[in-house]
Amino acid sequence: PAHPYDRLKTTSTDPVSDIDVTRREAYLSSEEFKEKFGMTKEAFYKLPKWKQNKFKMAVQLF
């Protein structure tokens, strides 16, 4: 299930529990994912792991 970005980011005051914290981005809706990352999930997962992590750090999901 998708969760709002505000509850997934590492600085959230009301974090979602029971998620894989190493894959926070996977819980974003497709729309919100595209808004935050500027690309689709499919394109994101084709990137090298280090680049994925760099993007995730930039949007507080790492």
Rank of each mutant, 00 (worst) to 15 (best):
Thr40Cys: 12
Ser29Tyr: 03
Arg7Leu: 07
Lys41Phe: 07
Tyr45Arg: 07
Pro1Cys: 14
Tyr27Trp: 05
Pro4Phe: 07
Phe44Asn: 00
Glu32Phe: 08
Phe37Leu: 10
Asp18Met: 07
Lys49Asn: 07
Arg23Tyr: 04
Pro4Trp: 08
Ser30Ala: 13
Val16Trp: 03
Leu28His: 03
Glu42Gln: 11
Val59Tyr: 13
Asp18Gln: 07
Phe44Arg: 00
Lys41Gln: 07
Ser30Met: 14
Asn53Ser: 08
Lys36Glu: 02
Thr40Asp: 14
Tyr5Leu: 06
Phe44Trp: 04
Thr40Tyr: 02
Met39Tyr: 02
Leu8Glu: 04
Val16Gln: 06
Lys51Asn: 05
Glu42Arg: 06
Ala2Gln: 15
Phe62Cys: 15
Lys9Trp: 05
Glu35Arg: 08
Asp6Cys: 09
Glu31Tyr: 11
Phe62Asn: 15
Val59Asn: 11
Thr40Gly: 06
Ala58Met: 13
Leu47Phe: 04
Tyr5Cys: 13
Arg24Gln: 03
Thr22Pro: 03
Ala26Gln: 14
Lys9Thr: 12
Trp50Cys: 09
Val16Asp: 03
Met57Leu: 12
Lys34Pro: 02
Thr22His: 11
Lys9Tyr: 03
Ala26Glu: 10
Thr10Glu: 05
Pro48Gln: 01
Lys51Asp: 10
Leu28Thr: 02
Ser30Val: 14
Ser29His: 07
Lys54Gln: 14
Pro48Asp: 04
Lys56His: 02
Thr40His: 07
Thr13Met: 11
Gln60Phe: 14
Arg7Gly: 07
Lys36Tyr: 15
Met39Ser: 01
Phe55Gln: 06
Asp18Cys: 14
Arg24Gly: 04
Pro1Met: 14
Asp18Lys: 05
Asp20Arg: 04
Arg7Asp: 08
Thr13Cys: 15
Pro1Asp: 12
Phe33Ala: 01
Thr13Arg: 11
Pro4Met: 07
Asn53Glu: 13
Arg7Thr: 08
Met57Cys: 15
Phe37Met: 06
Gln60Arg: 09
Trp50Phe: 05
Asp6Ser: 01
Leu61Cys: 14
Phe55Cys: 15
Glu31His: 12
Asn53Ala: 12
Phe55Ala: 13
Gln60Thr: 06
Leu61Gly: 11
Arg23Ile: 10
Glu32Arg: 01
Gly38Ala: 09
Lys41Ser: 05
His3Ile: 15
Lys46Asp: 12
Asn53Ile: 14
Gln52Arg: 04
Thr11Asn: 13
Ala43Tyr: 06
Glu42Val: 09
Thr11Glu: 07
Lys49Tyr: 08
Ile19Val: 06
Ser17Val: 13
Leu28Asn: 01
Phe62Arg: 15
Ser29Ala: 04
Met57Lys: 14
Phe62Thr: 15
Thr22Asp: 10
Met39Cys: 09
Glu35Cys: 12
Gly38Asp: 04
Asp20Asn: 10
Lys51Phe: 12
Gly38Glu: 06
Phe33Asn: 00
Lys51Thr: 11
Ala58Gln: 13
Ser12Glu: 05
Gln52Ser: 01
Thr10Lys: 03
Pro15Asn: 04
Met39Asp: 00
Lys54Val: 14
Ser30Leu: 10
Gln52Asp: 00
Lys49Cys: 14
Asp6Trp: 09
Ala58Ser: 09
Ala26Ile: 09
Leu8Gln: 03
Glu32Leu: 02
Ile19Leu: 03
Leu61Pro: 03
Tyr45Lys: 04
Glu31Thr: 14
Val16Lys: 03
Glu35Pro: 01
Pro15Ile: 07
Phe44Glu: 00
Ala2His: 15
Glu35Ile: 11
Glu31Pro: 04
Thr40Gln: 02
Glu31Asn: 07
Lys54Ser: 14
Lys56Arg: 10
Tyr45Val: 05
Phe37Lys: 00
Arg24Met: 11
Asp20Leu: 02
Lys36Pro: 01
Thr10Cys: 14
Arg7Gln: 09
Asp18Ser: 10
Lys36Gln: 10
Phe44Ser: 00
